[in-house]
Structure formats: structure tokens, C-alpha cells
Design a protein around this nucleic acid. Structure first.
Lengths: 149, 149
DNA sequence: TTCCTTGCAAAACTTTTGCATTAAA
DNA sequence: TTTAATGCAAAAGTTTTGCAAGGAA
């Protein structure tokens, strides 16, 4: 049985599974076995994972998934708004399970990304958009360095 | 002679050259022929260029430059603060000749980047940084879509 | 049957690197 | 003469694609 709540108090696997199925259905994405594996891994909590990390994690846990399917699935999820793709440093894409509006800290020393909730940032003033355009979204990345002590 | 001012009123090539030499000297970068070509191209005005665009432009104008040198030089410039490297969409790096603090509009339809001067954005509130860290820089990209008319 | 999904391998693309050659100090 | 910069080709890393095989409707 794997219906227990884990040591962090995270939602039980069954609940995550159900949650993923519901969200995929809402997006009109057919819940195949591989997609469910990727979704349950990524959507289990707010996190930022790369395609390679997801592939490695799935392989480690014994799943049979190809690299092509991981990439295709992540692109599919992102295009349907199930996850969000981030461009942080250009070296690779990061996939964010949190699609609610939010911003990021980027720790330059470790590479770690940390979510910044919307209420933590307030704009007093934003530039007027060019004619014929409107704001689709705002990407804010606050780069962090180690404070010299 | 190519010391005329061009039709846009931009600085004359000689002035740009001198400007580049001075800035490279300030950064302790030896002004070799290839570096000067890349610098005069990129630093002639505020703009965003990819490595391939720079390589193509140099080749078109008859310069003998290798791809490796273009990449190595751009990395060198960026590491010395002569230019700024941007991660906008993950597909490739963009090199920004404007190293003064500023933000960007990103037109999703055309891919075009537009500078947003600092005074156009004011933060009323920013999140507290995690312990032991301080802000190194703030990257703000305002994504634009075409306004439905 | 028909359509969609998957895996595998190959390809595409951007960027980096090794090394011999060239240019500069 | 000694060090640094360049060009070329190859390699590396990430992501996409073609196609045959498998699976669901």
C-alpha cells in the first residue's frame, strides 16, 4: 500500500494522482501512463525541474519512459498551461509546477530557484506598453549572491 | 574616408572605434582586430544581437572571424561587464550592448526586445532576501502580445 | 480500423573545447 | 621569445523530429 501521507505531510500519492487526472482532463490532455508518471512527479509539489532530472527520476523509479516522450510531454503540458517553462540562465529549460502568477529568486551560487509570491512584490509604476500591445505576463527574476560577511 | 556621420545621426565610425577602445582598455581587454570588429558592431548603438547574427554580419562585411572567436569574445565581454547576456526564451543567448541597469519588453509575436529604462519601473515593495544573500540584480521581462482590436 | 502515443535513433541547433597556427608584446 | 588570440573541426549538451511499433478508442 502506498496511500500513506509522507513525512512532510504532503498529499498522499492517491490524492496527487487524482489531482493530476483532474487537471489533465480540464486541459483536454489524455491521461496516458507516461503522462501520468510525469505529471504526478512534477505536480506533487511546487518545484522546478529540468527535463533531464525528470527523465532520471522516472528511470530510477523503474518507469519505462523515453527522452522524446519526456520532452514532448513537457511541451504539451506547458502549451496547455498545466506547467510553466522558465528561461533562467539559457543553459536549459526549467519546468515549474506552479502556474499561479509568481516571481523567482535565483541563487547564482547554487543555481536554486525559489518562488516569490505575488503579494511580496508591488509595482508603483510600470511602463506604458507600445501601441497595439498589451501585457501577457511579467517575468521577474531577482538574482542573489552570497552576502560578504 | 568613412568619418561621416550616418543618416541616423549616429556617432561616426571613428568615434565608435575610439569609444570601444577606451571601454575595452577600461576592462583590461586587449583590443585585437577581431575583438574590435565585434565591439564596434555591437556597441555602436543600444541593441540586442545573437552570436549567429554577429557572425553573419561580420562575414557579410568581409571580416575573417571564426564562430569560436565570436562566442569566446562575447563571453569575454560579458564576463568583464562590457556587454550583458540575456536569457529571454531559452532558444539562444542575446547580447545586450546596454549595460546600464534597465528592463525589457519582449514582443512574443515578433521576438523583438525593447529596452525599458529604469525610471519607467518603480517597485513599491520587494521581498526580503533569504538569509545570507543580497540582490545581485533584477531581471524584469514584460511579455507583450498583440492587443485584440 | 483509425488515430494517437511511445521509443529509439538520428538530426538539429547552440555553445564549448582541443589543438595547431598565427599574431602580438 | 614568450604569451595570448584565432581558426578550424570536433565534441558536448539540449531539444526536436522521423518513423516504425504499440496501444487505446
Amino acid at each position: 500500500m502506498d496511500s500513506n501521507v509522507d513525512s512532510n505531510g504532503a498529499a498522499a500519492p492517491e490524492a496527487i494522482k487524482a489531482h493530476c487526472q483532474r487537471r489533465m482532463a480540464d486541459c483536454g490532455i489524455r491521461p496516458t501512463a507516461q503522462r501520468m508518471r510525469i505529471a504526478t512527479l512534477l505536480l506533487s509539489e511546487p518545484q522546478h525541474l529540468s527535463a533531464e532530472q525528470i527523465l532520471a527520476s522516472l528511470r530510477t523509479s523503474g518507469a519505462r519512459v523515453s527522452k522524446a516522450t519526456v520532452y514532448n510531454t513537457l511541451n504539451l503540458f506547458a502549451s496547455h498551461g498545466l506547467i510553466r517553462q522558465l528561461s533562467v540562465d539559457g543553459s536549459r529549460a526549467w519546468f515549474d509546477s506552479n502556474v499561479d502568477a509568481h516571481y523567482h529568486f535565483h541563487d547564482l551560487a547554487s543555481g536554486v530557484l525559489i518562488d516569490v509570491p505575488v503579494p511580496e512584490v508591488e509595482f508603483r509604476r510600470l511602463p506604458p506598453t507600445p501601441p497595439g500591445t498589451e501585457v501577457e505576463g511579467i517575468d521577474l527574476i531577482i538574482r542573489l549572491r552570497r552576502k560578504p560577511s
